[in-house]
C-alpha cells in the first residue's frame, strides 16, 4: 500500500508513465489573465517546480482531464522572447529547452494585435501552440467581436475563446488540449517569411548550424537569433546538451555568414 501511495503522489511529475503525463507552458503578455486561467485549470493546486536552467519558475500546478495528467507551468508575462529582461529569458528558455508538450498562449481579446507579436515569436520556436483568447467578456462589453475560427485558420494552429474569471470556455480549452495530444487537430503554423536578403542569410546560417544542433531544436529559429547577434543562444544550447558542442568553432563559422 505504501508503494502505491508513493506512486500516486509522484505520478504527475516523475512518473516513467510519460504517455499519460503532459507539460503545458502558460505564456502571454502581462495582465492577460494567465494566473486566472492557471487557477481555474488547477484549482490552485500549486507547488514550486524546479525546472532545468538557472531560474526557478514560481507557479506550477496539476490537473487531469479525460484520463490525461497535466502539469501546468505559469511563465512570467512578457511582450516578447527577445531576452532583454530575465523574465523574457525564463519564458524563452522554458519554451525552447524544457520542451513543453503544448505552449498555451493566453491573449487579451480587447487588444489582440499587441498579443499576436508574442504568438508569432513562440511559433518560430515550436508549432505545438494553442492560443487562448481570454477576456472575451471585456471585449464584448467594448463591442469587440473576435472571430476565433478565422484567427485559428490564419495562424494555422488551434484557438479557443475564454472568459477565465467566470470559467467560460475552459472546458473546451481542456478538450482542445486533449484533441491536440491525440493528434486530432491538423497544425500548419503560419511561418513568417522575411525579406529575400534576410531569408538568404537565415538559410546560410541555418545550413552551417544544423549539423551541430540537437534534432529537437528549431534550427531556423537559432539562425534568426544568431542573425540578431544573440550568440548567447549557442552557449545555452551547449550548456543544455552538456557535451562536445563546438561552440567556439561554430561562432567563428557563423560569423563568416553574418552580413
Amino acid at each position: 500500500m505504501a508503494i502505491n501511495t508513493t506512486l500516486l503522489s509522484e505520478s504527475t511529475e516523475n512518473s516513467p508513465d510519460k504517455q499519460n503525463n503532459f507539460v503545458i507552458a502558460l505564456a502571454g503578455n502581462p495582465n492577460v489573465g494567465k494566473s486566472t486561467v492557471f487557477n481555474r485549470l488547477t484549482g490552485l493546486k500549486q507547488h514550486t517546480g524546479n525546472w532545468p536552467g538557472k531560474t526557478v519558475i514560481k507557479a506550477e500546478g496539476t490537473f487531469s482531464h479525460r484520463n490525461r495528467h497535466y502539469t501546468l507551468v505559469d511563465l512570467p508575462g512578457t511582450y516578447s522572447l527577445h531576452t532583454s529582461s530575465s523574465d523574457e529569458e525564463v519564458a524563452r528558455d522554458f519554451i525552447c529547452f524544457s520542451r513543453p508538450d503544448i505552449t498555451l498562449v493566453v491573449c487579451d481579446a480587447t487588444c489582440l494585435e499587441r498579443n499576436l507579436n508574442l504568438v508569432l515569436q513562440i511559433l518560430e520556436i515550436t508549432d505545438r501552440v494553442l492560443v487562448c483568447v481570454n477576456l472575451l467578456d471585456e471585449a464584448e462589453r467594448k463591442g469587440i467581436h473576435v472571430d476565433i475560427a478565422m484567427l485559428a485558420r490564419q495562424l494555422g494552429i488551434p484557438a479557443v475563446g475564454t472568459a477565465a474569471r467566470s470559467g467560460r470556455g475552459l472546458e473546451s480549452l481542456k478538450n482542445v488540449l486533449d484533441d491536440m495530444l491525440a493528434g486530432k487537430i491538423a497544425i500548419r503554423p503560419r511561418q513568417l517569411v522575411y525579406d529575400p536578403e534576410l531569408e538568404r542569410s537565415i538559410n546560410k546560417i541555418e545550413k552551417r548550424l544544423a549539423p551541430y544542433l540537437p534534432a529537437w531544436i528549431n534550427s531556423r529559429w537559432v539562425a534568426l537569433r544568431v542573425l540578431e547577434r544573440d550568440f548567447s543562444i549557442l552557449e545555452h544550447i551547449s550548456n543544455h546538451k552538456n557535451n562536445d558542442f563546438p561552440r567556439q568553432v561554430l561562432k567563428e563559422e557563423v560569423a563568416l555568414c553574418l552580413p
Binding site: Y79, S84, N117
Partner: peptide
Amino acid sequence: GNNRRRLLDLG
C-alpha cells in the same frame, strides 16, 4: 540595435 527591437516588441 537591441533597444530598437525592444521598442518594436512593445508595439
